[in-house]
Each structure stands twice: as C-alpha cells, then as structure tokens.
Simulated scan of single mutants.
Amino acid sequence: MIKVTDLAWLEFEKPDLARAEVFARDFGFQVASREGDTLRLRGTFAGPPCLVIRRGPTSRFVGPAFFAAERADLVRLASATGTAVRRFGRDEPGEVVDLRDPSGFAVRVVHGVPDLPELPDQRALTLNFGSEGRRVNSPQRPPRAPSRVQRLGHVVLETRVFRRALDWYLDTLGMIASDFLFLPGQRDRGPTMAFLRCDRGSVPADHHTVAMHLGPSAQYVHSAYQVTDLDAIAAGGEYLKQRGYHRTWGIGRHIQGSQLFDYWHDPDRLMVEHFADGDLFDSSVEPGWAPMSASGLAQWGPPVTKEFLGAQPSPKMLREVFHALRDDSELDAGRLLSLMKAMSS
C-alpha cells in the first residue's frame, strides 16, 4: 500500500515511570519530556523521541510507530484499511493512522511529527590498525559511563501467525526482506524468522527495522539502540554492571545484520540492546536464507544464553504453548519440536 521510511518510535506501558527513567538514563537515553503519566526518551540524533512510555498497570510493549514519506501515504493507507487520518495530538503537529497487525500489536504510521534538534554525540575513538598509526602520543581512556544512545534501530517480535504477519508488513507497509531463517530440514515449509528493512530504493537502510519469528506467543522480544562504537558498548556495559543491571547476552557480533551487540534486561525484565556497526542495504540486495540455530546467531561472542532465547520453562510459557497448539496459529507440534531443537543447537 505504501513504503514506510523508518521506525519513528516504540510505545510501552510501565507502572513505575520514575524507575523507568533511572534505567533509561543509565542505559544512555536523554529525557525529552516527563509530563504527567508520559515519559518520552530520545537519542542524540535529530528526530522525535524514540521511546514513549506511559503509566500502566503492568510493564508491556504496546507497539511501533513508522514514518510515512508523504501525507498522501497516510490518506492511501487509511482508505485501503478502512481507518482514518487523524491529528497526532490535540496540541501537537503531525497526523497518524492507527492500525493493528495480525499478531495484535498496535501499529502507528505518522507524518509531519516535528524533529527534536541534534544533541552532542559521543566521540568515536581514533584507532590504530596494524601499520596505520592514526593515534600518536594520545592514550585511550574511554570513560566508564553511560553510552550515549544515538537512535532507535529495530524491534524484534514473536508471533503465532508468522506468515500472516510477514505478509502484512510486506504488503501494508512496503517493507522488504533482508534475510530469512528456516528450520533445518523444513525449508520447503518456508521461513520461521524474517529480518525486514525499509525499502528506500537506492538509499541504504538498516539491515532490519523489524524482525519477527514464529513462536507460541505474540510478544515483544527486544529493541535495539545504536551507539557510537565498540568502546561505547563495552564501557557503557561496565557502567550498567556497576549499577546492578543484568546482562542478558554479549558482547558479540551478529551474523544477520553484522551488528556488534550487547543485551540487557531493564528492571521489568524487558530486553534492550546496544548495537554499533550494523549492515546497511539498498533495495538491490536479495534476501539471504539460512537454517535457524542458536549457534548461528553470532559470528563471535559468548554462547547464547537461555535468557536471550526465552527458553527457560515457566508456567506462563507452558500455557502459551498449549493455547498456541489449540488455537488458529501456525505452530504445530512438529514445528514446535523443531524450534526447540534449533534453539538448543
């Protein structure tokens, strides 16, 4: 229907905004505003706040917002989906179309939302490479301090209706696939994970803006935020560790997307990622295909943890598996067993 150009922001609910703000500052966000029951967080790059957190009874992901290139895209999208273009806020410029994807996540497409000005960024370190000595008489002393988040990169979702959700993001928002993962021995049944990017034609875009995989739940998996370089990831991670937060997995380098990564849990156990040096693709790059496996998630780094994979059994997980096998989902017993095997390989 249209081609969205990027993620605009993510929306969450949390019961304790004060605690959410403390973690946000430690992780490297700047507070754009705190008004009443809404906390807005931003990075150093110009743009709108990349996280909107509203007070709610539980900690949960609400959904993503995407940028439309033109107002006409909003009109076309609203007409095709039976929705309406409305003002973004009573006292705020911009317009929005509110949708819901097949997994049940609230999806917004916005246009005309004003940008916040750029903030001072974290300086990338000058590095010496072999015989190329660019740093002379100048020791490296990166501070053990919060990384400075630059921008929102991507969100990863789990869905019971993977094929329907994949088609919706391709057809409704005009996204294109960078990589597909399939269960070993089941490529003929199609992918079970997709990494989707925005189609900007010859203008490069992040390897993935949305990634999704088949599973027993419709849930948020993690979101990722760009920082300057590896030292920003590592020094920022040491600061988070000193502050008592829990590293979920890292530091390493992914295969699909190539990002340097480091994953953390916030106080409500929602997973967030610092990343740097991710792949940028234009529309000429065809999708890659690879078998899904735990060992295939990183080129190097520590072994992937059960926490990252969400593979720790719990009563909630068993209930979700039971309902997924009974309900109108794309998960059957054979695929479930294959998923469990792939995530332990």
Rank of each mutant, 00 (worst) to 15 (best):
D6A: 15
D6L: 06
L7D: 03
L7E: 02
A8E: 11
L10S: 04
E13K: 05
E13Y: 04
P15K: 09
A18F: 04
A20V: 13
A20T: 15
F23M: 03
F23S: 03
R25E: 13
R25Y: 10
R25N: 11
D26L: 01
F29S: 05
Q30C: 04
Q30M: 09
Q30S: 14
R34P: 00
E35G: 03
E35V: 10
G36Q: 01
G36A: 04
T38S: 07
R42L: 04
R42V: 08
G43W: 09
F45T: 10
G47R: 05
P48H: 08
V52L: 09
R54W: 02
R54D: 02
R54A: 06
G56F: 01
P57Y: 05
P57F: 06
T58H: 15
V62M: 03
A65H: 05
F66I: 12
A68I: 07
A68V: 11
A69N: 04
A69S: 09
R71L: 10
R76Y: 01
R76A: 15
L77N: 10
S79P: 01
A80L: 12
A80E: 15
A80R: 12
T81Y: 02
G82H: 11
D91L: 14
G94C: 06
E95F: 03
V96L: 03
V97H: 12
D98M: 08
L99I: 06
L99M: 09
R100M: 06
R100K: 06
P102T: 07
G104K: 14
F105A: 02
A106N: 08
R108G: 03
V109W: 00
V109H: 08
V110R: 04
V110W: 00
V110F: 01
P114I: 11
E118S: 13
E118Q: 15
P120E: 13
Q122W: 15
R123Y: 08
R123G: 01
A124F: 04
L127V: 13
